[in-house]
Amino acid sequence: QLRFETNGEEQAKKVLEEAKKHNLEAHVTIENGKWVVHVK
Rank of each mutant, 00 (worst) to 15 (best):
T29W: 03
W35R: 03
T29H: 09
E25W: 04
G33K: 01
H27R: 10
I30P: 01
N32Q: 03
A12S: 04
K20Y: 11
L2I: 15
G8S: 15
F4H: 06
Q1A: 13
K21H: 10
K21P: 00
V39K: 00
E17V: 07
E31T: 04
N23S: 09
K40L: 13
A19N: 02
F4L: 09
F4N: 04
Q11I: 07
E18Y: 15
H22G: 06
V37M: 00
G33Y: 00
V28P: 01
I30R: 09
Q11W: 07
V15Q: 04
I30F: 12
E9A: 09
V39M: 05
E25K: 08
L16A: 08
K34I: 14
V28Y: 04
T29S: 11
A12G: 02
L2D: 08
G8I: 12
E25H: 12
V28M: 12
V15Y: 14
N7L: 13
A19Y: 09
G8Q: 10
V28E: 01
K40V: 13
N7R: 08
L16K: 03
K34S: 07
H22V: 06
L24V: 07
H27G: 04
L24I: 09
L24M: 12
K21M: 11
L16G: 01
E17F: 05
K40W: 08
T29D: 09
K21I: 08
E9W: 14
E10S: 09
V39T: 03
W35P: 05
A26T: 07
E18G: 08
A12P: 01
Q1H: 15
T6I: 07
K14T: 08
K13G: 07
K13W: 12
R3M: 09
H27V: 12
A12V: 06
V36P: 03
W35S: 04
K34Y: 10
V15F: 14
H22Y: 07
E9H: 05
H22S: 09
T29K: 06
K21V: 07
V37K: 01
K40Q: 14
H38C: 12
V37H: 00
E31I: 09
E5L: 06
E17I: 09
V15M: 14
T29M: 08
A19V: 11
A26D: 02
E18R: 12
N7K: 10
L2P: 04
G8P: 01
V28L: 11
K34V: 13
L24R: 09
K40Y: 10
R3Q: 07
G8W: 09
Q1M: 15
A12L: 07
E5G: 02
V28T: 05
G8A: 08
K13T: 10
E25I: 13
W35H: 09
G33F: 00
L2G: 10
E25T: 11
V36S: 00
G8R: 07
L24H: 08
N23T: 03
E31H: 06
R3H: 13
V28G: 02
Q1L: 12
H38P: 00
G33H: 03
E9T: 04
L24D: 03
H27N: 09
E10A: 12
F4W: 09
R3K: 07
E18F: 15
A12C: 13
Q11M: 13
V39Y: 02
L16Q: 06
G33T: 00
H22N: 12
K40T: 15
A19K: 03
N7E: 15
Q1Y: 15
K40E: 13
E9Y: 12
H22P: 01
V37T: 02
A26Q: 01
V28N: 00
V37R: 00
G8Y: 13
A26V: 09
T29G: 04
H38G: 02
T6D: 05
E9S: 06
F4T: 06
E10K: 08
N7T: 14
N32R: 01
E18H: 15
T6L: 11
K21F: 10
N7H: 12
V37P: 02
A26P: 01
E9D: 04
A26R: 00
T29I: 11
N7G: 10
K34N: 10
E31Y: 01
I30K: 10
H22K: 11
V28A: 07
V28F: 04
V15R: 03
T29P: 00
L24P: 04
L16H: 03
G8F: 13
V37A: 01
E17A: 14
A19H: 04
K14D: 06
A12Q: 01
G33N: 06
V39D: 02
K21Q: 10
G33Q: 01
N32G: 10
E10Y: 06
N23F: 11
A19I: 10
K40H: 13
L2T: 13
G33L: 01
E18D: 11
T6R: 01
H38V: 15
V39R: 00
H27L: 09
N32E: 11
H22T: 04
V37Y: 00
K20M: 12
L24K: 06
I30M: 09
K14F: 06
H38L: 12
K40D: 11
N23I: 02
L24E: 03
A26Y: 05
E31Q: 06
K20L: 14
E25Y: 06
Q1R: 13
E31F: 02
N7V: 12
T29R: 07
L16P: 00
H22D: 04
R3Y: 09
V15K: 04
E17S: 10
L2F: 05
E18S: 13
E25A: 11
N32D: 14
A12I: 04
K20N: 08
A12M: 06
V15W: 14
Q11G: 10
N7S: 14
H27M: 12
G33E: 05
